[in-house]
Simulated scan of single mutants.
Amino acid sequence: MKARIYITRKLPDEVVRGLQEQFHVTMWEKVDIPVPYEILEKEIQHVDGLFSMLTETIDEKLLQKAKKLKVISTMAVGYNNIDIAAASKQRIMVTHTPGVLTETTADLTFALLMAAARRVIEASDYVRKGSWKTWSPMLLTGQDIYGSTLGIIGFGQIGQALARRAAGFNMKVLYYSRSRKEHAEKETGAIYTDLESLLKESDFVSVLTPLTAETKHIIDEKELALMKKTAILINTARGEVVNETALYQALQNGEILAAGLDVFQEEPISMDHPLLTLPNVVALPHIGSASVKTRLAMAHLAAQQLIDGLHGKRPENTVNPIVFE
């Protein structure tokens, strides 16, 4: 009898077909609406494998109903939405998809940096609203990127890829990480420093750390106060690594110059959120890895790891290897 799997969002046909060849597949057919918790709660009771997204809350209450579940394969790098301890307790392996989205996310991070620095969205809106009447010496002037200092908080694969892009702009790169990455320093020229020094010295601060108990609000009122008044904050990690209330106040009061945000504490962000009232905020809908090639690669990797797990193999990117002990 074929194992049963549930997919929490509509996937490309080529990915689904590969899974249907081996398993009985049920899928939430909506593209733009996450599966409601109540439906997932019912579906998870009957499946051996779960193909999930970052939009699902997979908590202990949900997992307690998953009596047959063996594998959760999430199509994301981050897995803070999954209760890993509860999954491990029930011997459910959890996998994620790092690596395949590194370069694409670094591209978007640098694009967001450039858009915020050069006020690209403001300038585009200025034209579209018919406000452009003539050239003016100081009209929509932004910040230079070439030759500036970039501070990267979290120096994993994406952080290192961002540093390589910065090299092409002759940027000085500082980084702060849980541990020093000397091999990456040699490759990228990045300089290891403490968080306070990074915040004080950087023209751009890019947050690329995973969301954990230690990194929640790693950028808060105190950290924002350390930054230059001309500094720009970029967040393409997770929304909760930045205290959004403190960020709003810092932007409104001129403590920092601007922000480029691809992630938010609540997604989608509410249309009446204070951050969206500020012209010096570039806001994107969590599209860091959103290229056709990369999203397909993520889906195929997540599918393969689900297959491996259900066939008794140890998937390449297992989050909780303790389940194999």
Rank of each mutant, 00 (worst) to 15 (best):
T193K: 05
P137C: 05
A184R: 10
K133Q: 12
R91C: 11
K129E: 15
A66Y: 03
S202K: 03
M93A: 13
L108W: 03
G159N: 03
I153L: 14
S73L: 01
M93T: 13
T97S: 05
N80T: 03
S124P: 00
A116F: 09
T105Y: 06
Y175F: 13
S197V: 00
G151S: 07
A85H: 15
T109I: 05
G154H: 05
V77A: 07
G142Q: 14
I152W: 09
L113G: 01
D59V: 02
Q90R: 15
G159D: 05
D83V: 00
S148G: 02
L162I: 13
L140D: 08
I84L: 13
K70I: 04
I72W: 10
K133V: 10
I145S: 08
I145R: 11
K61D: 03
Q157N: 11
G78A: 09
T95S: 09
M114H: 02
V77N: 09
Q160M: 12
S124K: 14
Q160R: 15
A66T: 07
Q143I: 09
Y146K: 14
A115V: 04
A115P: 05
A87L: 13
I84W: 14
D203G: 06
R164H: 15
F204S: 00
N81F: 08
R180Y: 01
F169N: 02
N80K: 04
I191N: 00
T134H: 13
I153A: 06
R178H: 09
T104Q: 15
R128E: 11
S73P: 01
E103N: 07
G130A: 10
A66Q: 09
L140M: 12
R128K: 15
T193D: 03
R128Y: 07
D194S: 08
T102R: 03
K65W: 03
N80Q: 07
S148T: 07
E122N: 05
S179M: 14
R178F: 06
A163V: 06
R180A: 05
G168F: 05
Y146E: 13
D144C: 07
R119C: 10
